[in-house]
């Protein structure tokens, strides 16, 4: 029971924060990269330790690049 109450409390505190993080901050500047721009290249490490670059897919595939706020959250 105590565990349940703690879980509910923690979830209750966390949820509004995560919801707020999804709202466009009124002061947030527009993204630097917009429709029509060439997406800046990058090379980053994935969850299996592999290096992945945007240019790996050039001329081969479209890329759906999904920025997310934190691991272990929804979306």
């Amino acid at each position: 029971m105590k565990y349940l109450i703690t879980t509910a409390l923690v979830a209750g505190m966390l949820l509004p924060t995560l919801r707020a993080a999804d709202k466009p901050a009124e002061t947030a500047p527009p993204p630097a990269v917009k429709i029509g721009d060439i997406a800046p290249d990058f090379t980053l490490t994935d969850q299996n330790g592999n290096k992945v670059s945007l240019h790996d897919f050039k001329g081969k595939k479209n890329v759906a690049l999904a920025f997310y706020i934190f691991a272990f959250t929804g979306g």
Binding site: V33, D37, I38, A39, H55, F57, N62, V63, A66, F67
Partner: peptide, 12 residues
């Protein structure tokens, strides 16, 4: 949280 779709030429 932002989704981009980038085409094969590298354009958003």
């Amino acid at each position: 949280r932002v989704n981009y779709l980038i085409d094969k030429e590298g354009k958003v």
